[in-house]
Amino acid sequence: MGLRLPRIVKAKASLKRILSSSEIAASVPKCHFVVYVGEAEKKRFVVPISFLNHPSFQNLLSRAEEEYGFDHPMGALTIPCTEEAFIESH
């Protein structure tokens, strides 16, 4: 499995745009970002940026891109999996 640099670049650009919002940025520690996880109800997680390099998280990003693209109406990165699957992927 190769690293898909264009996807990561798009994701990072999207994260910068999302984190520039003062309301969200105020509640997110430095070097972390917000993801919403869930299929029906979305739960908010604040995760370290280092997760972007983890193969399991990259797989989840690929799934999110396929389902939502990087311009999701929730205003943050949304991962289309169950909360349990997200937690187990770390």
Score class of each variant (00 low, 15 high):
L52P: 01
H32W: 02
A26V: 04
V34C: 06
Q58K: 12
L52D: 11
V46S: 12
V28R: 01
L52G: 12
I49K: 13
F45H: 14
S20C: 13
A25W: 02
K43A: 13
E41K: 08
F33K: 03
F57N: 10
Y36F: 07
N59D: 14
E23Y: 05
A40I: 04
V35K: 03
N59G: 14
G38W: 00
E41C: 05
I49L: 15
C31Y: 11
S20D: 15
S56Y: 05
F33C: 09
E39Q: 12
F57H: 13
H32Q: 10
F33T: 02
S22Y: 01
I49Q: 14
K30H: 14
E23G: 08
H32T: 06
F57D: 11
R44P: 05
K42Q: 07
V46F: 01
F33V: 03
L52C: 11
C31H: 14
A26L: 02
V46W: 01
P48H: 08
V47G: 10
A40K: 08
L60F: 05
E39V: 08
H32L: 04
V37N: 07
S21N: 13
P29V: 08
E39I: 08
F45Y: 15
S21I: 00
H32R: 04
I24Q: 09
N59T: 14
E39C: 08
E41L: 07
V28K: 03
L52N: 08
H54A: 15
A26I: 00
V46P: 00
H32C: 10
S27R: 13
Y36A: 12
E41V: 06
F45P: 03
S22V: 00
I49F: 11
S27C: 13
F51P: 00
H54N: 15
S62Y: 04
K42Y: 05
F57W: 10
S62A: 12
P48Y: 02
P29F: 04
F33E: 03
P29Y: 06
K30L: 13
S56R: 06
H32G: 06
V47Q: 09
S21Q: 08
R44H: 09
S20M: 13
S20P: 00
E39Y: 05
A25M: 05
S62I: 01
S22L: 03
N59W: 07
L60W: 03
Q58G: 07
G38F: 01
E23N: 12
A26Q: 10
L61T: 02
L61H: 01
F33L: 05
N53Q: 14
P48G: 07
Q58Y: 06
V46M: 05
C31Q: 15
A26M: 01
